[in-house]
């Protein structure tokens, strides 16, 4: 037994075709937290979740979920997890209620308890009125919520969410986010994979950045952002023609490489001494008579962290 809800040490997985999906992945998730696995397509996120949910066997290393080894005691693990995959895993012919009742029975709840649980979950996930309709007629967001409800039959200790908002419209996405937050407040440990940085930033207390089957960085969203180095100064110009001149000024003022985005007329550069740099930039622009629409200091986005981290790896590999 460990005091981690999820623990993976040096997990390796190679598929039949010879592709290495996981190459020594380490992961530790504290109980009651939301942990994000962030990475591009093919990074190994889904493989990781499938191994932890006992759907795939690992080839090397070890993994524990809720204190039980996934290879040695898969049945005990299955009693303590919920899984919501990339595609809604519900029976589309049956109604929402019939689905939840069936999954309740398969969790070995007695008939009446399964029925009561189905009603409770429909109510909780805002599906009461749709309970009698076939799941195939639900909207994307509703189906995903039904999926979440099915994963919560036993209020599991650990809930795996594999890209829970992929393919949803913004409304469906915010519905799912709201649901995940509520579950986390109830104390469910959530392991969430996503390729949306915004999603990880909003939901996860800690994030593991996964690339090519390994964790290449880990920390709170803030830690990851500070790890990139400094805050950044953003300047938005009125006249796109002034971009090159402004970039030179900005580079001189900050002593760093300046990123230019002509579409948004935005310049961005990292700064070390926040306020001094800001004053320097304002003075330089003013002196050159360049008109700015907006000047702001900000933390780096996770996008920047992510691109930075994966770019490093790409250089290493080259």
């Amino acid at each position: 037994m460990t005091d981690h809800a999820v623990l993976a040490q040096g997990v390796r997985k190679r598929y039949g075709g010879g592709t290495t999906a996981l190459d020594g992945l380490d992961l530790a998730v504290a109980p009651g937290t939301v942990h994000g696995l962030l990475g591009p397509n093919g990074a190994g996120k889904t493989t990781c979740v499938r191994i932890l949910a006992t759907l795939l066997t690992l080839d090397g290393g070890r993994a524990e979920v809720a204190g039980f080894d996934v290879l040695r005691e898969p049945a005990r693990v299955r009693r303590r997890i919920g899984l919501v995959g990339q595609h809604a895993a519900v029976d589309e012919v049956l109604s929402g209620r019939q689905n939840l009742e069936m999954f309740g029975r398969l969790h070995h709840l007695p008939t009446r308890a399964a029925r009561r649980r189905a009603d409770e979950l429909l109510e909780r996930f805002g599906l009461r009125d749709a309970g009698r309709r076939p799941a195939g007629e639900y909207s994307g967001g509703m189906r995903r919520r039904l999926d979440l409800a099915a994963g919560m039959i036993m209020a599991p200790a650990v809930l795996f969410l594999d890209e829970p908002t992929t393919g949803l419209d913004p409304r469906g996405r915010s519905e799912v986010w709201e649901t995940v937050r509520a579950l986390a407040e109830d104390g469910t440990t959530v392991l969430l994979t996503t390729q949306y940085l915004e999603e990880a930033d909003r939901l996860a207390g800690r994030i593991s950045v996964v690339d090519r089957g390994r964790v290449i960085a880990e920390g709170t969203p803030d830690e990851l952002k500070s790890g990139l180095g400094a805050d950044r100064v953003d300047v938005v110009l009125r006249d796109p023609a002034a971009l090159p001149a402004a970039a030179d000024l900005l580079s001189g003022a900050t002593g760093a490489r300046v990123e230019t985005d002509p579409d948004t007329r935005r310049l961005s550069a990292p700064v070390t001494d926040r306020v001094a740099a800001l004053i320097e930039v304002v003075r330089a622009l003013d002196g050159a008579g360049i008109d700015a629409e907006d000047i702001a200091l900000r933390r780096p986005t996770l996008d920047e962290v992510f691109l930075h981290l994966t770019a490093d790896r790409a250089e290493e590999a080259a």
Partner: peptide, 17 residues
């Protein structure tokens, strides 16, 4: 072809079922 097989396999039910 659907993920429902994954759900079944992640449940504590008998695999023969």
């Amino acid at each position: 072809s659907r993920s429902i097989t994954d759900r079944f396999r992640s449940l504590p039910m008998a695999s023969s079922a």
